[in-house]
Design a protein around this nucleic acid. Structure first.
Length: 610
RNA sequence: GGGGGCGUAGCUCAGUUGGUUAGAGUGACGGCCUGUCACGCCGUAGGUCGCGGGUUCGAGCCCCGUCGCUCCCGCCA
């Protein structure tokens, strides 16, 4: 016979007893469980301890004449203790139906204090909000609290589910290097100085992009990885500074449709598994061309829960019978405000003020009313829009009496579209039109390959330079700077999945043609030698038999955020950095010893004080 | 790099028009209480009002600067 376990007993089936495991069936057993004192209630003689561990909460009780009373009396919140005693049934009136263990309690026969706790800088009990810096400095306490504890467990379960779904589709997981080479495109790199090669640096990968493509060239076919990615860029509520994880995927001999067919069930499945009572859109997801997304939703991240659709009405305001000068020769986008007609004047003034804050000249509007069966317009600019033009507007935008129609106008099309998109979101929120408790997905496809950089008067890559253009190869190789207009119209096989306005997934069919890649970079102003030097490893691989391939990456934290119902990425990250990129718990970044700098052949030059 | 918000007891917050000794709840500590589960009751301690400077007879409050956290813009192939 083995001796009793010092911290946790087991039942007859060999199952470990925890603070969450005891039920009516355990009544009569003597058990040992360990955990934190969640709450202590002292009734004079009678003391209750709620003991908490990862698995749940169990009430323990002791009376004054018992041997362990003095030791129990000393216990305070968040001390770690081990208790041993019989499991007893609670009387009907004293059962706690809010706890799974609420039918029973443990009578404390002995209690051992494993660890005491000082006065807490952050109470574990209760669900108050605390300042971010305190929460981060004492993350280990915050993680004991139900909200974070649940979120982190959800994250782990989502990762397990994603892995299983990938294995089920015949994918293999491989690890790619963390210490790698700096890549000049994209985000700022995190650099790691080399000890053996003075003046040279490793870089942490911004993504395993080139490696996963090399894995395809190496013939492994369906690859995936829960991959850490490092980018030295500033944070946002939905974007960690420094590091994040993605489900990174690549596969060979596939078309864009093959990738879609693989990705949809994975996302769909994981959302259905963890959505609870929230609704999950059924695939196949609608495919929205990039240009269409910008027009109808004013964003390349359309939130389909919002029913408002934007229309282009530039031509209506260009008509001779419409005399509103402020909109002439501009891109004008119309944003319907369903049911906004009865809103008070202040509603419209507030929106106008908000639009100015976003950098627009304003947000014009007409309120649509029914006058003897005809729709008429009211409001400051209504008098400039004669009846036939108004009829055209209402028809095109699908608005009716009782609605309002808002206008975003700008000489620059992108600005008009962007403000319209922001107004669409804002109106959806203000008018409470955004469907709740639903996950709505869509693909955004046919991204432009290039965009015009007005400041530097040159052509830039608009997104990923490694995507395959949708093109005629010979014509592409023959492009010159005279073909600017045609070049700017080129689309690529690149695609995103957007869920409720968040970018969830991003991918592409890759460009595996060295000649085309060098030409593509030439068009963006990078000479062939430079491309050869920067991407030599991958280009060279493409010269020795590269399969057609494509893939994607799913932002893990975004998926967890949405499923956890959180709006901040730190709530789903175990040990996050602050928005300023500091680790308040471990104290990173930090100074290092002069000896370490010397080994690395580094000298620090502090920025000059102002 | 730029803009907004916040910073008062261990924690969450209140603090009037610039005016006596800066308050409450919670936690801590002590006392009372045998069925609570946010237990209840009584008491005690606990403050560089983020920091520095200024205006004023007098500053938690007004002004300037600075630091920290946060949200946004830039940035994020």
């Amino acid at each position: 016979m083995s001796e009793a376990h010092p911290y946790r007993s087991r039942n007859a089936q060999g199952v470990m007893d925890t603070c969450g495991s005891l039920r009516a069936a355990d009544v009569g057993r003597t058990v040992t469980i360990s955990g934190w004192v969640n709450r202590r209630r002292d009734h004079g003689g009678l003391i209750f301890l709620d003991l908490r561990d990862h698995y749940g909460i169990t009430q323990a009780v002791i009376e004054p004449d018992e041997a362990a009373f003095a030791e129990t009396d000393k216990c305070r919140n968040e001390w770690v203790v081990t208790i041993t005693g019989p499991v007893v049934a609670r009387s009907t009136e004293t059962k706690n139906k809010d706890l799974p263990t609420g039918d029973v309690e443990i009578r404390i026969a002995s209690l051992k204090v494993q660890s005491q706790a000082q006065e807490l800088p952050l109470p574990v009990f209760g669900d108050l909000d605390y300042p971010e810096d305190v929460r981060l400095k004492y993350r280990f306490l915050d993680l004991r609290r139900e909200r974070l504890h649940k979120n982190i467990m959800l994250r782990s379960n989502i990762i397990r589910s994603l892995r299983q779904r990938m294995f089920d589709q015949g994918f293999t997981e491989f690890q790619t290097p963390i210490l790698t080479a700096s890549s000049p495109e994209g985000a700022r790199d995190f650099l790691v100085p080399s000890r053996r090669y003075p003046g040279q640096f490793y870089a942490l990968p911004q993504a395993p992009q080139q490696f996963k493509q090399l894995i395809q060239v190496a013939g492994f076919d369906r690859y995936f990885q829960i991959a850490p990615c490092f980018r030295d860029e500033d944070g946002r509520a939905d974007r960690s500074p420094g590091e994040f994880y993605q489900l990174d995927v690549e596969m060979s001999f596939v078309t864009q449709d093959d990738v879609f067919a693989m990705a949809e069930p994975v996302l769909q499945g994981v959302f259905e598994e963890f959505a609870g009572d929230r609704k999950v859109d059924k695939g196949p997801y609608p495919r929205i061309a990039y240009d269409e997304a910008l027009l109808k939703y004013g964003s390349d991240k359309p939130d389909l829960r919002n029913p408002i659709l934007i229309s282009d009405v530039s031509d209506v305001f260009a008509r001779d019978d419409v005399e509103f000068k402020a909109f002439k020769n501009k891109t004008v986008r119309a944003i319907p405000g369903p049911g906004a007609g009865p809103q008070p004047r202040s509603f419209f003034d507030k929106l106008n003020e908000w639009a100015r804050g976003e950098g627009a000249a304003g947000l014009g509007y007409v309120i649509l009313e029914d006058e003897n069966g005809t729709i008429t317009g009211k409001g400051p600019i209504a008098k400039f829009i004669p009846a036939p033009a108004l009829a055209e507007l209402t028809k095109r935008c699908g608005v009716k009496a009782g609605d309002a129609l808002f206008f975003s106008a700008d000489a620059k099309e992108e600005r008009a579209a962007k403000i319209a998109g922001l107004a669409r979101t804002r109106l959806g929120q203000e008018l409470k039109l955004i469907e709740e408790g639903t996950f709505r997905f869509c693909w955004v496809v046919d991204y432009p390959m290039y965009e015009w950089n007005e400041d530097e008067k040159m052509i830039d890559f608009s997104h990923n330079p490694f995507s395959m253009p949708q093109y005629d190869r010979e014509k592409f190789l023959g492009f010159s700077s005279a073909d600017k207009d045609e070049i700017l119209k080129l689309k690529v096989f690149q695609y995103d999945i957007v869920c409720n306005g968040y970018e969830m997934l991003s991918g592409a069919i890759r460009n595996r043609d060295p000649e085309v890649m060098i030409k593509a970079f030439q068009i963006a102003g990078h000479p062939a030698e430079e491309t050869e030097e920067k991407f030599g490893g991958m280009l060279n691989a493409f010269r020795y038999g590269a399969p057609p391939h494509g893939g994607l990456a799913i932002g893990l934290e975004r998926v967890v955020m949405l499923l956890a119902g959180e709006e901040n990425i730190r709530e789903v990250t175990m040990f996050p950095l602050t928005q300023q990129g500091q680790d308040l718990l471990m104290g990173a970044p930090s100074d290092v010893l002069p000896k370490q700098l010397k080994e690395l052949h580094l000298r620090v030059v502090m920025p000059e004080a102002k």
